[in-house]
Nucleic acid binder design. Structure first.
Lengths: 328, 328
DNA sequence: CTGTTAGCGCATTCAA
DNA sequence: TTGAATGCGCTAACAG
């Protein structure tokens, strides 16, 4: 592998000049050509390691997420990766299996690797865990209490509020809601939105209509079954993420329960899936593309400027009305 | 951030001694203690960039996959990452959107980043694209023609053969099969297995029973619908990946078609999902954990030994028999 | 606009 | 066992 010295030699200039050329600083046209020729002939590639050592930047961004098997996370990662790669950055992705210890361990791993910035979807992290970190951090999806930090989130409360209100406006009062873990930020926020809409319409929240579980297919599946076996069956179900929605759909189908005739359904997250299913499911969609872009912008801005101001971006979801809710 | 020199100073030894200590070479107990104290006091962390420059290793492994929204890929990546991280390696993941140009572009990006090895799930790559690469490569899931390379794959043909044969043994002859793209390795192999089982039992393959599409929900959904509208409806459907299986299940449910009374089904890949659904779906499962482990082992071995022998590991799938196939 | 020079932090030779 | 010295490949002063 050729190095900058060999290029300089062949081009008849100094390494400094080559370096300048490589970094977009003007050099004489004459030299420029010579350098370009030498680079081509030698198949020279700049050594990013040496460059990193010198400029104190690794050109990598760490991504810390709970699970890699969650479609929402991976979709966002994909978008981010495809943006930052254009600026020469690469991502190091770590999933911490929703595990408290692993979350910190892998955070430290990323720090040790000298990433230039970190994108985190946190669960257990607290203020203390991150207050001594001196590289840019962007929190996504979830937020950490009491921390003034960059973040890109959606208005979870409003999302759930809108969905619930839509059901209420369609005459529903017995609305079952299936949520993620109690201790998870999005889960709490989404419940708040549900609660707010119900209260606003003076509808009592029945405890058995609020089911917490994991954000997975099984939770949705089992919760739907248990709801449909209740003495007083809810007239509508609100599933609060993709996997849960999928589970609910599968369960209702199994039980041969017609949507929306027998029960209405509002789902979450995956428009593509919602369109495939019959009847098409009314869902809350997150602006995934926008979220990914904002995250990428935020982390790049924080890394590339010395601007230490924090910015928290809250994006709105959209309620895509399709055919799974009946007016009663 | 402290560097090795400061540690050496505080410990009263030379940087060489500290370096030796860090690399597990014996130093006098007396010095060892002094060094350990200094490291603790200074909160010294070895700088991986400088180390990389010196040892000509980046301690990163590139992962090149078609899509990041495919559960099979991400599950494997998660396993790999959790193994290699223990040896200090990190992964740089690139998805190329199943795009021919991006596949090469991102491969080059990884090469430019000086990764120590690459794990590739290829689609369009040919021998020519990789013959000049001088770092270890492990191909997964799919194989490249004519290339003597490391690979970890499953016996796709046998998997499909077993599934088809199982259906045949249950009396089925009109077996619909829903496959991925025609040009994709796994897709071709799985078709071969189907074909072989059919031929072996002298069953004619009806063209309309073989549907190619993408490995996604929509393909499974639409194909199932079209099959159930045929003049001669197949008595069984074989779905050849997770997303397709999901689509088929959703479609059959929508059409109120009972499984297995009206049509039998064999799915692929996701045992968890298959267990949630009623009736539980009989599926071909890939040994994901084993696949991930083997990939990690193979790439690490190739990187850490100078052993340039190639090894191709072919793993067997398992047919998990549940309740979605009826004997006729 | 260009070249000389120093040094990023580390691992490794070689002599002691 | 140890330490002095060297250099991995690059960028950034600085002087010209």
């Amino acid at each position: 592998m050729a190095n900058i010295k060999q290029v300089a030699n062949m081009a008849g200039v100094s390494t400094a000049t080559v370096s300048k050329y490589l970094n977009g600083i003007r050099v004489k046209d004459f030299n420029k050509e010579a350098i370009e020729n030498a680079i081509t002939k030698l198949e020279y590639k700049r050594n990013p390691t040496a460059r990193s050592l010198r400029i104190h930047k690794s050109m990598t961004i760490g991504v810390l997420i709970p699970e890699l098997d969650n479609l929402f996370s991976t979709s966002i990662i994909s978008i981010i990766e495809n943006i930052i790669i254009k600026k020469g950055y690469s991502t190091i992705i770590c999933d911490y299996k929703s595990d408290r210890e692993l979350e910190i361990k892998k955070l430290n791993f990323l720090l040790d690797k000298l990433v230039d910035g970190i994108i985190i979807m946190p669960i257990y992290l607290t203020k203390k865990d991150i207050e001594n970190i001196d590289i840019p951090i962007v929190f996504i999806d979830r937020r950490i209490n009491d921390v003034d930090a960059n973040c890109v989130i959606i208005d979870n409360e409003k999302a759930a509020f809108d969905a619930t209100k839509y059901l209420i406006n369609n005459g529903h009062k017995d609305i079952g809601v299936i949520l993620g873990p109690r201790n998870v930020y999005t889960s709490k926020e989404r419940f708040k939105g549900y609660e707010k809409a119900m209260k606003e319409h003076d509808i009592e929240i029945k405890e058995q209509y609020v089911i917490h579980g994991d954000y997975d297919i099984k939770t949705g599946h089992d919760a739907a079954i248990s709801m449909m076996k209740m003495n007083k069956i809810p007239t509508a179900i609100f599933a609060t993420n993709y996997e849960i929605t999928l589970g609910v759909i599968i369960a209702l189908n199994e039980m041969n329960i017609n949507v929306p005739e027998e029960v209405s359904l509002v789902g979450f997250d995956n428009l593509e899936m919602a369109r495939v299913v019959r009847p098409k499911v009314t869902i809350v969609t997150q602006p995934i593309e926008e979220i990914g872009k904002r995250i990428a912008q935020t982390i790049l801005r924080a890394i590339e400027t010395q601007n230490r101001e924090k910015q928290c971006i809250k994006l709105d979801t959209e309620l895509v009305i399709q055919d799974s809710v009946k007016k009663i």
